[in-house]
Computed example of a mutant assay.
Amino acid sequence: MPGYCAFCYARLSGDLPWCDDCDAELPRNGVACRRCAEPMATLGGGDVCGRCLRRPPAFDAAWVPLRYEEPLVRLVQRFKFSADPRAGTLLVELLIHALGDTAPCGERLIGVPGSWARTRERGFDPVAWLGDALAERWQLPRLAALRQRDSSSQRGLDRAARRRNVKDAFGIEGPLPESVLLLDDVMTTGATLDALALACRRAGARHIGVVALARTPPDRI
């Protein structure tokens, strides 16, 4: 409702679509690996997690400002499973508020293409919808990646199984510019974005960043 907080429905006094109290309670991903954005208890002696040191992803850096916890879980589910455009608009506003009016990197924005089966079931591709909105706000040209094969849902799979599930699932027509920015709504282990980043490297990209609204904490994977 216009004039009311999108989360608690309190009257608003500022320009944001959520109130100061709800803003203070958002689950920010403040201490996280610079490479994969996984939440960390402490950065210790560096800003890259041990997993990225052992097996670096195909992308170079990640910007994921929030953790996938309430109230974001309900908001994302309303958007993805109920096709709620207001929820989608709020997701875009949360990301722009966290990252700014300029994309953090990249000459092109490339979203993770949705599963054929789930896109038919939902009637739309959530990441494509977010990508269109963000490309317009960031004034960043958008490119479409291709699904070379459909993959089953990643839900309930461990890290290794997630990597196998999306291996060689994506393709993109090159040549790409040197720097690109990949987009997903929620980043769980990073396996999907890693697979898309590999496809982008094969198409000529050399510097690859990723952006998502929220990162799933390790204890929820």
Rank of each mutant, 00 (worst) to 15 (best):
L12W: 00
P65D: 06
V48R: 14
R162D: 07
D132N: 05
C33Y: 01
E25D: 13
A195K: 07
A197G: 06
A128S: 02
Q148V: 04
M187Q: 14
P126S: 10
L143F: 04
G111N: 02
A203Q: 00
D125S: 01
T119A: 08
D21W: 05
D194I: 13
P71V: 08
M1P: 15
L196R: 02
R159C: 12
Y9S: 14
W116Y: 12
L143S: 04
P27A: 10
A214V: 08
R202G: 02
A6R: 15
L43D: 03
F170S: 04
A195C: 10
E25W: 10
C8Q: 06
P177W: 06
P65W: 05
I172A: 01
V211Q: 01
A212I: 02
E107M: 09
P27S: 12
Y9N: 11
A205E: 00
R163P: 04
L183F: 06
E93T: 15
L193C: 07
V48M: 09
P141S: 10
P177H: 08
D23R: 15
D168Q: 12
P218H: 14
V211M: 13
A197D: 05
N165C: 03
W129T: 10
C36K: 02
C8D: 04
T216A: 09
S115Y: 03
R147G: 08
L109Q: 07
V180N: 02
D219Y: 13
H97E: 15
V180Y: 03
G106L: 07
A41V: 15
A214F: 11
A161F: 00
L26W: 11
K167V: 08
W129M: 06
V64L: 02
L134S: 01
P17E: 05
L75Q: 06
V112G: 07
G3Q: 11
G50E: 15
C8K: 06
V31I: 14
V127H: 01
P27L: 12
K80N: 08
L176V: 04
F81Y: 15
D132E: 13
G156F: 08
G156P: 06
R155Q: 11
L183I: 07
G174H: 04
S152D: 09
P56Q: 13
P57S: 10
M187N: 05
R215V: 09
R159M: 13
P113Y: 03
T42M: 13
G30W: 00
P218F: 09
I96Y: 01
D132A: 12
G171F: 00
V31A: 07
R162I: 06
L140K: 07
A24M: 02
V210P: 00
E173A: 13
T119M: 06
L130V: 10
R215M: 09
R149V: 03
T102A: 09
V166A: 05
R147Y: 03
A191P: 09
L198R: 15
L43G: 14
L109V: 07
S13A: 09
P217S: 12
I110Q: 01
D21L: 06
C105H: 10
R163K: 14
D185N: 09
R118T: 12
T216C: 12
L157H: 05
L134Q: 04
R215T: 08
R78N: 12
V127E: 02
V31E: 07
L26F: 10
L183S: 04
G204R: 00
G3S: 11
L43Q: 13
A32F: 01
S82P: 00
P141A: 10
G30V: 00
L182E: 11
G123V: 12
A199H: 00
